[in-house]
Design a protein around this nucleic acid. Structure first.
Lengths: 198, 198
DNA sequence: TCTTTATTCGAACGCTCGTTCGAAAAACCC
DNA sequence: GGGTTTTTCGAACGAGCGTTCGAATAAAGA
């Protein structure tokens, strides 16, 4: 990787961390300069402005998570196994890239114009991917319910930026298993131990 | 209700709508003045400042939803029925007060000092309430899982401000039923039609 | 009607923000 | 080492922000 690209990536990483901590609107370009070790003006050599910074963070992260999900689905054709693989990938990726994923989930309103359109395009592909998985798991469900269930599952998974601590006692694989069992089997029914389903 | 209180409440309502639409940080006091029909300076007769406005919105809404939940639980002692009642109340209240609840869910970071402390106090009571309900439904589950399941359920419910349209084809009661069935019975198992459980 | 209190508002202040500019410094190439 | 390009940065600008102030208006009480 060329040194320019490395510094650009480092800038995005630092910025994502600050955005996740303070929130996009409350962080100033001076905050980002201090956190990334570059001068205030120096940031503008790599990026058009603050919103462009947010765009690159979101675009990179969303592309990564979409590509990762698609390749995670290659391992099986069984509908339930594919859904399980999707959830596991999403949750573990989320836990491994908390800052970027929080920025992606929480700062969806901040972009505008072409940037917003491009990110929304990826989002639609990602949502459609999960919705098709649910259709394969329960083909008889009406579309309205399936759509609501899709968002319910995304809510379960994306909400973790509000409470989950990747360094805590609950590792992301166990969390993924738990969420999968809740969504597929239900909380009350899924009384088997965490590792190893029925 | 005294005219002063009525105008104060109207101010909060208008402000909540604008906060929900544009986001707290991106809305200016001038936006709020225009939306509520008061002059810019006039707002400060009712409120200490922008953050105080957010605090009152959150405090009122959170107190309402907590009180409502507690009284909704009075109707039964059966654990599963109580959980069902909680979910139904939360979801229908959310749908009926979208603006305030979105501000509550999405702008949790914007407060500071005593305001933040007071709101977090209510939040803790509300979260504890649901966690105790889950304990009664599945007493044998380890605390770590029960806690994660609590947040998973809140995620399912609170995420709706990202997609749900109260004026759309899916009414809030049906949505509450669907989320309840997913959480209690699981998506794959809950294949019965929406109206009327198994 | 006069006095007092409650309510509203135009105008302005001070500050912080994102951004820009031109020059300095570093890296690269022959 | 001279010349060119890439990269960095101090300093400043202009706009927009939350807030304040004092006066004007409306309401209430005597």
């Amino acid at each position: 990787m060329r040194p320019y690209d490395e510094r650009f990536t480092a800038l995005l990483t630092h910025a994502a961390r600050v955005f996740a901590g303070r929130g996009y609107d409350r962080t100033t370009m001076r905050d980002l300069a201090a956190a990334s070790g570059v001068s205030l003006a120096g940031i503008y050599y790599y990026v058009r402005g603050k919103e462009d910074l947010l765009y690159h963070i979101q675009e990179r992260c969303f592309t990564q998570v979409l590509d990762g999900a698609e390749s995670a689905l290659q391992v099986t054709v069984d509908p339930e196994e594919r859904l399980t693989a999707f959830i596991r990938h999403h949750v573990t990726f989320f836990a491994a890239h908390m800052a970027e994923m929080k920025v992606l989930s929480h700062e969806a309103q901040a972009l505008s114009g072409d940037s917003l359109r491009k990110v929304n395009q990826i989002k639609r592909r990602y949502v459609n991917l999960l919705e098709r998985l649910l259709k394969d798991v329960a083909p008889e469900r009406p579309p309205l319910e399936r759509s609501a269930a899709t968002y319910a599952l995304f809510g379960m998974m994306n909400w973790i930026y509000n409470w989950y601590d990747p360094a805590g006692a609950l590792d992301s694989g166990t969390l993924a298993d738990l969420l999968t069992r809740i969504f597929l089997g239900g909380f009350a029914e899924a009384r088997s131990p965490v590792t190893g389903g029925s």
